[in-house]
Nucleic acid binder design. Structure first.
Length: 918
RNA sequence: GGGCGAAUAGCUCAGUUGGUUAGAGCGCCUGUCUUACACACAGGAUGUCGGGGGUUCGAGUCCCUCUUCGCCCACCA
């Protein structure tokens, strides 16, 4: 951390070099490493990463998600919390298995050709070779996660947690094996949960079929279906019990076309008499609702579509599938069955039909409802706990409109199908005795079972693996050592604080984590769920690989730097609002971030050359009398910026420690407001005004006043860098290391978050007048096209009470406006450009020989007209008794004062115009 | 079918419980290489706050309604 030669610093920030220099130093010094013991004496602040799929490649959604988390964790780390950001990956059962299956397919093989054990081995090798790359990519964007605690859902440690959870839920009577119709992906060869089978609106067709009565083919019932091939598995036609049209037919039999199977007509209130013909064909093995009807009426359940989606007589279906259709894929079977039904004379009509069809969330294949045995979790008791913590305020969701979505889902919760028929995942911890006749029930065990508990004979483990989300939902505590209740991390860091993710996985993951946390540890795993938006392109389409509209964050890092990427993510991030980026124009999206970094860099260069590295005085030690108006002003602005940033970000946790109050509930996590407050301070206040204002003092010979200026500038920039560190950690670290007051062997990444002074400087307002005057002179100069290099004369007419303060600012205001400014009691007569300022101030700029009377009159008249209109409206309001009676007194008083000031200004303007001659 | 959100400057968006002359960034116009910065500086222009109605002393903000987008949920046979 040696001071570089300022003159050798390039004018632009070298992001790549800075990133390469600082990230390793942070990790070497353990800056990101949380300490469980330290957490006993400070507030812990914990975020667990939404673990990306172990095979994932960083995309902009990760960029957004992880930037938000990093900003929060860096903020709290500086604020003195024991901050833990726990990273890791998810083994992603179906997704990862699919990747390896694709590799096998390229070799012309399926997983079944390879066999279970070798296949799992192959996936594990693949993961260990290429997996987790995304974690390195997260480092490239500056993520300050605690890499010493990196977790993996399929690690031995987390596998223990998975088994514990399964067994405990079983002991609680909440895990059971169910026989029902589930969502089946024929391509992935597994069942899916309700959440994994996504709806997509599809333009389909409705086929109307007429089934004749078995003993009187002249009569019949018309049914409608979007899946005509399923008619081969029909076991009944249901009508509503109160439907008089069909009352006489209930109990009689129909003959199924094509296979001649006889099926009964049953009465069931599931049927809606108003829909279509009011009669529904019942296919219990291939439709979840039909299954319920079938159960109620004790109907057979023939399976006519197999696991690969092939139509054939799978089970209890003898004689149901005509030879011409057997062995066909379900889609092909649908095409082929139409002409058959037509020939049989039962196809009444085909109509276009818009409906929602479920698709596999991993491969987009149309899901096939299928009767099978699966493991389920009874969710009702868990959901009730998750609802209770939201209602009590122990949990909040931002933006709060998602709370209603969360509640709605939990109130209507359905049991969770947790078994999958894939191979990559946690094997269901259930063993069956293989001894014929042994009465031993299935053995559910935390440890592997090798012999039957009853007969000592052989056992076989359940073939199924668990839903990936069954390990993810334990993430907030499985990563901390659970089920070991004494694990130091678990004791120190559970429950955590904020969960940052996208709304897409509110049900998949967030709600379930709340349920598991409440169930297993009696506390929700975090008090705040922050749902950020989605990264989209300029047509508002989600960025995706398939659309080709993505932006590679690593490209952005290379071209603009990680800080610029992070800046763009945060600065544009309204609460829960989508982030729009243009994949065809990176410059448009990321240049602002880069430009901002360059600005910071150049302020830093200025400091290095003008303030230097010699020690500076501590601002707290400076007597108020030694501060210039500009000094007082910038210190006040820094206090305001700190307050604004704190208000935008916090509070970090419920004030009473356990539950949010209604007043607190919607507050905080306004990242864009935080970014804007910090940006405004450093750019529009520190750089644009303060720095310019004190240049003469810095350029002057050594003096006490120069020392004050050095101290205040160094202090203000230090504060700015601290406020910005969470957003742009690399450049702030690089610059902070060069500040004269920075201690050796310290990092801004763990320096203290700034705190506003208790007693702000009262004289800060004087500089606001300076700004008014300077802006007015600049405006006049611009209007009369005065060349920038030319100095002009100017007189500031000042009422007595302000005169002394403003006389002291003559030089400063003059230098900033390139004018020889004189503060006086009265204006010098003569042709001049004149501006009326607030509080009785008048500015007179002679501009000898350049003034255009007409132009000047025009300008003043326009201003007078506008001001008079406003004054008239304001007077009207003040004359309205209802306003003065009902509006808050303070407001009325303020409006009166304003009216007076406007009236004075109007008079002044009028006098000027008269003086110019009509 | 049910629910939710959005509509504010050319673009992307702020606008906290109703209260100054509605803001920011980018873009646009004019001028400038002013010894930190042209990735910059200075000065400008730009809005019937989607339409209509209502409540109020006062509405971008609250209520009703319409229009247009978007999202979520649902046993649309």
């Amino acid at each position: 951390m040696t001071a570089p030669d300022p003159n050798s610093l390039p004018t632009t920030y070298d992001a790549a070099a800075t990133q390469a220099a600082w990230y390793p130093r942070w990790t070497e010094h353990g800056v990101f490493t949380a300490d469980a013991e330290r957490a006993a004496t400070r507030e812990p602040f914990v975020i667990v990463i939404p673990p990306p799929n172990v095979t994932a490649v960083l995309h902009m959604g990760h960029g957004l998600n992880n930037t938000v988390q990093d900003v929060l964790i860096r903020w709290r780390r500086m604020a003195g919390d024991e901050a833990l950001w726990l990273p890791g990956t998810d083994h992603a059962g179906i997704a990862t298995q699919n990747v390896v299956e694709k590799q096998l397919a390229a070799e012309g093989k399926s997983r079944f050709d390879v066999g279970r054990e070798p296949f799992v081995q192959r996936v594990a090798e693949f993961v260990s070779r290429t997996g987790g790359e995304i974690l390195n990519q997260l480092q490239a964007i500056g993520s300050s996660a605690d890499w010493t605690r990196t977790a993996y859902t399929f690690s031995p440690e987390l596998s223990i947690a998975v088994r514990e959870a399964f067994v405990r839920l079983h002991e609680d009577g909440l895990v059971y094996k169910g026989h029902r119709v589930i969502h089946w992906c024929p391509r992935c060869g597994t069942s899916l949960s309700d959440e994994e089978a996504e709806f997509a609106d599809t333009a389909g067709k409705m086929y109307h079929l007429r089934y004749p009565l078995a003993d009187d083919p002249s009569q019949g019932i018309t049914v409608a279906t979007t899946r005509p091939e399923t008619m081969l598995g029909d076991v009944a036609v249901a009508v509503h019990p109160d439907d008089e049209r069909y009352a006489a037919l209930v109990g009689r039999e129909l003959e199924l076309p094509l296979n001649g199977v006889r099926i009964p007509i049953v009465a069931d209130s599931y049927t809606d008499p108003a829909f279509g013909s009011g009669a529904v064909k019942i296919t219990p093995a291939h439709d979840a609702n039909d299954f319920e009807v079938g159960k109620r009426h004790a109907l057979p359940m023939p399976v006519i579509i197999d696991a690969e989606g092939i139509v054939r007589e799978v089970e209890a279906a003898a004689g149901r599938v005509p030879e011409s259709l057997a062995g066909l894929d379900r889609a092909e079977a649908r095409r082929r069955i139409i002409p058959l039904l037509e020939t049989a004379g039962v196809l009444i009509k085909i109509e276009p039909h818009q409906h929602s069809v479920r698709h596999c969330y991993r491969c987009d294949t149309v899901v096939e409802p299928r009767l099978s045995d699966q493991w389920y979790v009874s969710m009702r008791p868990l959901a009730d706990k998750a609802l209770a913590v939201l209602r009590s305020g122990e949990l909040r969701i931002l933006p709060d409109r998602w709370e209603a979505v969360y509640v709605n889902w939990l109130e209507g919760i359905r049991d969770w199908n947790i078994s999958r028929q894939i191979w990559w995942g946690h094997r269901v911890p259930v063993w069956y005795c293989t001894t014929p006749g042994c009465a031993q029930a299935p053995m559910v065990s935390r440890t592997d079972v090798t012999t039957c508990f009853t007969c000592g004979g052989g056992v076989r483990q359940d073939e199924d693996v668990l839903d990936t989300w069954f390990s993810s939902w334990l993430w907030p505590f499985s990563t901390l050592g659970w089920p070991n209740e004494n694990a130091p991390d678990l004791k120190a860091f559970y429950p955590g604080d904020v969960l940052v993710t996208a709304p897409e996985i509110l049900f998949f993951w967030v709600s379930r984590m709340v349920m598991s946390g409440c169930w297993f540890l009696d506390k929700p795993p975090f008090h705040t769920v922050y749902l950020h938006g989605t990264v989209r392109d300029m047509e508002h389409r989600k960025m995706s690989k398939s659309l080709g509209n993505g932006i590679d964050p690593l490209d952005v890092v290379e071209l603009y730097g990680a800080d610029a990427l992070r800046w763009t993510m945060v600065a544009g991030l309204g609460l829960g609002v989508d982030v729009m980026l243009d994949p065809t124009d990176l410059e448009k999206s990321f240049a602002p971030g880069r430009n901002f970094c360059t600005k910071l860099w150049n302020i830093g260069r200025f400091l290095l050359t003008q303030v230097g590295t010699e020690p500076v005085l501590a601002v707290a030690d400076l007597p108020a009398s030694s501060l210039s108006a500009a000094d007082a002003w910038i210190l006040a602005r820094l206090d305001q910026a700190i307050a604004d940033c704190d208000a935008a970000l916090g509070p970090p946790r419920p004030a009473n420690g356990s539950a949010w109050t209604d007043a607190e509930r919607g507050k905080g996590l306004r990242l864009s407001e935080y970014a804007e407050s910090a940006r405004r301070f450093v750019w529009n206040e520190l750089a644009d005004w303060y720095l310019e204002a004190i240049k003469p003092r810095l350029y002057a010979e050594a003096s006490a006043d120069r020392e004050v200026a050095r101290a205040v500038l160094a202090h203000a920039f230090d504060g700015a860098l601290r406020l910005l560190q969470p957003i742009v950690p690399f450049i702030t670290e690089a610059l902070w290391q060069q500040l004269p007051q920075t201690p050796a062997e310290a990092f801004i990444a763990q320096a203290a978050w700034p705190v506003a002074r208790v007693a702000p400087t009262p004289s800060a307002d004087t500089f606001e007048y300076v700004r008014d005057v300077v802006q007015a002179i600049r405006s006049v100069r611009s209007e009369y096209n005065v060349q920038p290099g030319v100095w002009v004369e100017a007189t500031l007419v000042t009422p007595e009470p302000l005169r002394a303060a403003l006389e002291a600012q003559q030089a400063t205001a003059g230098a900033l406006s390139r004018s020889r400014l004189t503060v006086a009691a009265a204006a010098v007569a003569g042709l001049s450009a004149q501006v009326i300022l607030r509080d009785g101030l008048e500015l007179v700029v002679p501009l000898a020989g350049m003034i255009d009377i007409d132009k000047e009159r025009q300008r003043l008249t326009t201003e007078l007209t506008q001001l008079q209109m406003q004054l008239t409206a304001l007077d009207g309001r003040l004359a309205n008794e209802k306003f003065t009676a009902k509006a808050p007194p303070a407001l009325v008083e303020a409006e009166r004062g304003k009216a007076e000031d406007w009236r004075t200004r109007c008079a002044q303007l009028h006098a000027k115009i008269v003086a110019l001659g009509a």
